[in-house]
Each structure stands twice: as structure tokens, then as C-alpha cells.
Design a protein around this nucleic acid. Structure first.
Length: 284
DNA sequence: AACCCCAACAACCGCATGTAT
DNA sequence: CATACATGCGGTTGTTGGGGT
């Protein structure tokens, strides 16, 4: 017995979300928490299927999301993880706090694939492109969906590395968004009391992230935690999620334009207070 | 100015997996 | 154990905006 598609009901809306729908979904989820996605649209007063609501929340409205292009460091992380894990986007995303599988998948398909090919690296295998293969450049999509690209980590097949990759990536060294935030402003008990997203809590212990090869974000965060924010690393920490913040009632001036480190810090603190307060209320 | 092309990304679809009964 | 249901995941498509001609 196959499952019925959840979105085939007549009368359910599809396509791009409006600001009003976003607002309904955000206020419902922040007020009631996430449970029973199938019931969410009805309870929130939306003409959407639960799946659509979940996707919209996960990929766009979640308050802990980063926005904007992936940094070079994140890109390198994605490439390294892809070599190890293949197209397991959700696994890869779990190592990049604030990033979604969809976002990473899109970035991979639109940016990274091309970059790697330009560098003469096959994005599917992470090996140097064969001259013949480079001529066709057809990403092999065998029937059944069990392509090497999809299922078999390239690193497992060979110990050799392309010249472009110097140092091996260690997932344990990547700090979570929560750890970064912890370093920046929040006491641990507040963070632990308000898990914004359980998928971001699967990371390393702080002790494990002390390597000198940690991401630049981590080192930047520790710099910032010491005494303040520095303009040069702001974009690596997070882009400003304007729309959800506006809907959560933040001052428009605040959300649209932290142009200096100090404005950013103030706005970010306000954002954290609201988001964490709401989540504490929800999960308390 | 109008048109076309393409990149970027949001959203959808179908299948896989986990869980409750 | 079988079934039904909820959710997660990855592939694909549709839309939109910007750049080039």
C-alpha cells in the first residue's frame, strides 16, 4: 500500500509563500512549537499541506538560519564532506550550523560543481577529470539511484587526494552555531535551555574544537567573545534574516541594517532575546 | 527598449525510513 | 507481524532577476 501524497488535496495552495502566510506560520510555530506537521496548516490557518509548511520553516523561516552565500570556509567544508559522504545533504548540513540541506544542495549544483570542473576535478568522484570524461561531462545518473555519487563516499574508494585538497577536514572541529553564539554572548544555561534546533546540537564538545585548524568562523567567534565584534568577520557569522525578524516584531531599522559591528551586536542581541525567549516559553 | 539566456534559489514531488497501533 | 501514518531526504522543476545582445 503506497502512501498517499500529502499535497493532492484540491484547494491547497502551492507555489511561493506570501508574507502573510509566513507570518501565520512563524507566529504559530513560535507560539506552539513544532509537532504534527500535518496539523500545523489547519491550526495556523493556512491552506498549505504540512509538508510544505515544514519545508518553508526548515529552509527559510527558522530563526537560527544563516542567510546569504556560503563563505569560502563553509564551501571547503561542503566539498570535504561531500567527498566523504556523497550526496547526503542533510548529513553535510548538520556540520554547517545555520545552513539547510536544500541550501547546500543548491549551492553545490550551481557553484561548487562548476568550480571543481574548472579546476579539473570531477565533482562526483573528487578525482581529476579524465580527458575523455571531461569531454562529455555528463553526470552519471544510473538507474535505481544508487550511483557512486549518491551513495558511495569517494574517499572510501581511494586514499588518493586531488592536489587541490591540502588538509583533511575533521568534522569534530566544526563548532555548532550554538557554540558560536555561546562564545559571543550567551551563557551556557540559556543556550541549553532553549535548543533552537535539535539538528544543530549534534556537534563536537568544546574541547574538541580547539585545534588550530578550526574554521575561521570559530576563531573569529572567540575573538569576538573576548571583547567585541569585528567588522571583518561579520558576514561569516550570519546574514541578517530580515523577513522573519520583521514578522517577529523587531524594529525595521534594526533588522535592515546593522552596518557596524556594534549595531550588529545590538541587533543580534535583540534578535536572540526574542527568539530564545519564545523558544524557552515553548519548550519550558 | 525589448528580447533572450542563464544563474540562483525556493518549492515541489516521490520515495525511504521511523514509529505507533 | 502487518499496516497506516508522519516525517525526512534527495532529485527535480518552476520562478525570478540580472546581464548580455
Amino acid at each position: 500500500m503506497g502512501r498517499q501524497p500529502c499535497c493532492d488535496k484540491v484547494g491547497l495552495k502551492k507555489g511561493p509563500w506570501t508574507a502573510e502566510e509566513d507570518q501565520k506560520l512563524v507566529s504559530f510555530l513560535l507560539g506552539n512549537g513544532q509537532c504534527c506537521w500535518r496539523a500545523v496548516p489547519k491550526l495556523a490557518g493556512l491552506l498549505r499541506c504540512g509538508k510544505s509548511c515544514r519545508l518553508r520553516w526548515t529552509n527559510y523561516l527558522r530563526p537560527d538560519l544563516k542567510r546569504g552565500l556560503l563563505s569560502d570556509e563553509e564551501e571547503k567544508t561542503v566539498i570535504d564532506l561531500h567527498e566523504q559522504l556523497g550526496n547526503r545533504w542533510s548529513k553535510i548540513a548538520s556540520h554547517l550550523p545555520g545552513r539547510t540541506d536544500n541550501e547546500i544542495k543548491n549551492h553545490w549544483n550551481t557553484h561548487i560543481k562548476k568550480k571543481l570542473r574548472k579546476m579539473g576535478i570531477d565533482p562526483a568522484t573528487h578525482k581529476p577529470l579524465q580527458p575523455a570524461a571531461a569531454a562529455h561531462q555528463q553526470p552519471q545518473r544510473p538507474t535505481g539511484g544508487d550511483s557512486p555519487e549518491q551513495k558511495v563516499p569517494a574517499a572510501a574508494a581511494t586514499g588518493s587526494q586531488s592536489g587541490a585538497e591540502e588538509d583533511m577536514f575533521c568534522p569534530d572541529e566544526v563548532p555548532t552555531m550554538m557554540q558560536l553564539l555561546d562564545n559571543i554572548i550567551l551563557p551556557c544555561d540559556v543556550v541549553e535551555a532553549a535548543p533552537l534546533d535539535s539538528s544543530c546540537g549534534t556537534a563536537s564538545s568544546p574541547a574538541e574544537s580547539s585545534s588550530s585548524s578550526s574554521s575561521s568562523s570559530a576563531s573569529a567567534a572567540s575573538r569576538g567573545g573576548g571583547g567585541g565584534f569585528e567588522d571583518d568577520w561579520l558576514p561569516q557569522i550570519m546574514e541578517w534574516p530580515v523577513e522573519p525578524m520583521f514578522m517577529m516584531g523587531l524594529d525595521v531599522d534594526v533588522v535592515t541594517g546593522p552596518t557596524s559591528a556594534w549595531e550588529f551586536e545590538d541587533a543580534f542581541n535583540a534578535y536572540q532575546r526574542i527568539a530564545l525567549f519564545d523558544h524557552q516559553e515553548t519548550w519550558a
